[in-house]
């Protein structure tokens, strides 16, 4: 590449990241629409592309190890990531959530603790014995946001954080793909069941895409509880769950 252009791209790194990620999103949504007929949500494909690019470049900080793409590290870094996650809570009305009844809260807690338990047990079965890694992988089984947020808070290694994102991504994709097929079998055909579903699964893109492919009318109900899932997971993961795991090990 021309060294002058390369210097511009590196100096304006955050803008390079915006342009590159925007292009990635466009390709992903095109592929979602044309190749999977909307069954696999564009956001999941975009994240998959991101993970593949990071694997191809192979750096400790993924593509951000290339000086030209260092801005991707800033865009996906803790500051902007946390800002965006907090912003997604905006517009969630506490009254609406309260009206959905106790069952929404129960499903939220059940979904979170099932994720932390199953993810943690599988991490243990694969030889991890430290509370930090087990909590982070369990958090990844919650969502691909709870995993890295929890891992960063309690000081997990980059490998374990990447594993937790991978676990969350597997979950999101499986929820997207399986929901339309399993909806009838699990009685997912009314707003209340959709709130329970959102609380149990929690993965935002998975829940939204899964419900959209099942019955678009159910999307806001599932999204409402799912919105709390990541926040609650980020609250409980590095605190209560980490302390429980540390006491057990």
């Amino acid at each position: 590449m021309n060294p002058i252009v390369e210097k511009v791209l590196a100096d304006y790194g955050l803008l390079t990241a915006f342009a590159l990620v925007g292009l990635t999103m466009a390709c992903a949504y095109w592929a979602s629409d044309k190749l999977t007929r909307g069954r696999l949500h564009g956001s999941a494909i975009a994240i998959l592309i991101g993970l593949i690019l990071a694997a191809v470049v192979g750096g400790k900080k993924g593509v951000a190890d290339l000086p030209v793409l260092a801005g991707v590290g800033l865009m996906g870094g803790a500051m902007l990531r946390d800002l965006a996650i907090v912003a997604t809570a905006f517009g969630v009305k506490l009254e609406e959530f309260a009206r959905s009844g106790v069952i929404g809260a129960i499903s939220l807690l059940a979904g979170l603790f099932t994720s932390f338990l199953v993810g943690g047990l599988i991490a243990y079965a694969f030889g991890y014995r430290d509370a930090v890694s087990i909590t982070t992988i369990g958090a990844g089984a919650a969502t691909y946001i709870v995993g890295p947020v929890t891992g960063a808070a309690i000081g997990a290694s980059s490998e374990v954080i990447a594993l937790s994102i991978a676990a969350g991504l597997v979950k999101a994709i499986l929820v997207m793909v399986l929901t339309p097929f399993l909806a009838q079998a699990v009685g997912l055909d009314n707003p209340r069941a959709a709130m329970v579903f959102g609380g149990l699964m929690g993965t935002n893109s998975g829940v939204m895409a899964g419900l959209a492919a099942t019955d678009p009318k159910l999307v806001p109900y599932g999204a409402m509880t799912a919105t709390f899932f990541t926040g609650l997971g980020c609250l409980l993961g590095p605190s209560l769950v980490f302390m429980i795991n540390r006491a057990l090990l």
Binding site: S43, A46, I47, I49, A54, G76, G77, I137
Partner: peptide, 25 residues
């Protein structure tokens, strides 16, 4: 938020994670 998550995914140590692919799955 989704694009930022994409940027976050692209800046992770994925090659390090691939060794434990079965576990993540």
């Amino acid at each position: 938020y989704v694009p930022i998550v994409v940027a976050m995914a692209a800046s992770q140590n994925v090659r390090g994670a691939l060794g434990g692919g079965v576990m993540a799955f």
